[in-house]
């Protein structure tokens, strides 16, 4: 995983200090862990809330 993290961040022009890797990795793992929560939600027909305007949530 460390090499994948290093390579990906290098593609962004960001060099990661050795001491930072464990903290970066744990956050990547956390997101993967949380992603399991999506398993029971049927997202296929859900339009993402990409254009987020207050008017969207405004209901009379």
């Amino acid at each position: 995983m460390r090499e994948a993290v290093r390579q990906t961040l290098l593609m962004h022009g960001i060099e990661v200090d050795k001491k930072d890797y464990p903290y970066v990795e744990v956050q990547v793992q956390l997101i993967r862990q949380l992603e399991k929560m999506l398993a029971d939600a049927d997202l296929r027909d859900t339009v993402p809330a990409l254009v987020y305007r207050a008017a969207e949530v405004y209901k009379e």
């Binding site: 960001i14 990661v16 903290y23 939600a41 993402p48």
Partner: peptide
Amino acid sequence: GNDVRTSLQAGQLVTAVQYIKAQQARRLIR
């Protein structure tokens, strides 16, 4: 600071698919 730097580095690794899924989940929550 260390905590913010590593969070920002981790953020560079979030994929577009994960971001879109997060916005789909967000619509369901809303």
